[in-house]
C-alpha cells in the first residue's frame, strides 16, 4: 500500500508531502493501518448501499 497525502492546488507540479520524512517509517506504520481501515470501511458502506447489485464490476465501483 502507498499513500499520497493531501490535495495539490498547484497548477505547475505534483506536490509531494515531505513532512513524513521527518517522522519516518515508524509514524507511517501507525498511519497505514488506520488508513487501511478507513478504506475498507468506506468500501463496505458502498457495498451495503449498493447491495441490490448482483456483483460489483470495476466500472460500478469506479463511479461509486
Amino acid at each position: 500500500m502507498a499513500i499520497k497525502w493531501g490535495l495539490n492546488p498547484n497548477s505547475s507540479s505534483l506536490g509531494v508531502d515531505v513532512t513524513f520524512l521527518l517522522v519516518g517509517a515508524a509514524a507511517l506504520s501507525v498511519a497505514t493501518p488506520f488508513v487501511s481501515a478507513l478504506v475498507r470501511l468506506r468500501a463496505s458502506k458502498r457495498a451495503s448501499s449498493a447491495k441490490t447489485s448482483e456483483s460489483s464490476s470495476d466500472e460500478d465501483l469506479a463511479q461509486s
Binding site: 500500500m1 502507498a2 499513500i3 499520497k4 497525502w5 493531501g6 490535495l7 488508513v35 487501511s36 478507513l38 478504506v39 475498507r40 468506506r42 468500501a43 458502498r46 457495498a47 456483483s55 460489483s56 464490476s57 470495476d58 465501483l61
Partner: peptide, 25 residues
C-alpha cells in the same frame, strides 16, 4: 482509493482491491 478525510489517494495491490469488492477487471 480516494479518501476525503484524511485527504489522500491510497494505492493498493490487486489482492487488496479484491477485498474492496472488485471481483475482476
Amino acid at each position: 482509493a480516494q479518501l476525503s478525510w484524511p485527504r489522500a489517494l491510497v494505492f493498493v495491490d490487486r489482492d487488496y482491491a479484491r477485498t474492496l469488492g472488485i471481483k475482476t477487471s
